[in-house]
Amino acid sequence: MSVKGAELELKSLPRVSARRRMADRTVQSLVYAAFVIAIIPLVSVLWMVVTRGMERLDLDFLTFSMNGLSSSDEGGGANHAIVGTLQQVGLTAVMAVPLGILTGVYLVEYGGNSRLARVITFFVDVMTGIPSIVAGLFILAFWLLALGFEYSGFAGALALAILMMPTVVRATEEMLKLVPNDLREASYALGVPRWRTICFVVLPTALTGIVTGVMLAVARVMGETAPLLLLVFITDAINSNPFEGPQGSLPTFIWYQAGDPNPQAIERAWAAALTLILIIMLLNLGARLLARLRKPVSR
């Protein structure tokens, strides 16, 4: 303290030592660098997908399938894959959204601090971490091998639903927690039964938030590939029945075209990647806009 003290007597304000200032600056530049490092791959991926994808993304690509074409042929399209993806993801949402929302409602409105609610909360968290390939293997063992069904879009949707459910539960939970309690109490005070309160007061209040969460969850499962490889298989033709036979899908389309040595196939892979990214970004953007709309209301 004596050295510092002497220094203090000379001037009222001590200098911050060069070492400390250096450390501060160094960390600051490292932190900025970390951000830049993260942005580089994002820009690179998006740039490659857009530039390479634009080369083939046209009306033909969206409206034709690969039926009867070999991978070295020019042309062809991903229509069968787009149809498949939309159907599979649609089915997934039909299964996962009601289950997810109901579970969320249970956890917030009914579960309280009960043992069951705590167990479910824990496993919802754990379930978010299940690798998609494991979900795929499970449906393979259960639906295809044990129950004897064949490859179908629906089998893929089952696996995707497992991946989507926890996200929906989380989103519902978060949103329900934001609904002010006064609203519930006001409704009970009017003699409205609990389930009607939840259905007609609580859920509508949280609706935009839940929809936002669901859209993000849909965007998330839309790009899943691994379970589809095991469960939906692949076809070059349009199969508009998701309950029977192999179906196309954008991710598996990319998988097979990208693994093909022919440049025509690789072009198609990039175009399909662009299509997939566009759909996902639209969903993300929509969700974000919706979330922004909601904000003033909740305040």
């Binding site: 009601p98 289950l99 997810g100 109901l102 579970t103 409602v105 249970y106 956890l107 409105e109 009914y110 579960g111 069951l116 609610a117 167990v119 479910i120 496993f123 919802v124 754990v126 379930m127 299940i130 494991v134 979900a135 293997l137 499970f138 393979l140 063992a141 259960f142 091998l145 044990a146 497992i162 459910m165 926890p166 539960v169 039964p193 609990r194 389930w195 009607r196 939840i198 259905c199």
Partner: peptide, 30 residues
């Protein structure tokens, strides 16, 4: 109404737990 709603809400939570258990069971079985 309340009973049905409460049970289906709890039920879907239980379904979620059942799926987790089923994953382990079926993978082991195969």
């Amino acid at each position: 109404g309340d009973q049905i709603f409460a049970h289906s809400a709890r039920g879907s939570g239980v379904v979620l737990l059942a799926i987790m258990a089923a994953i382990a069971v079926f993978l082991i079985w195969r």
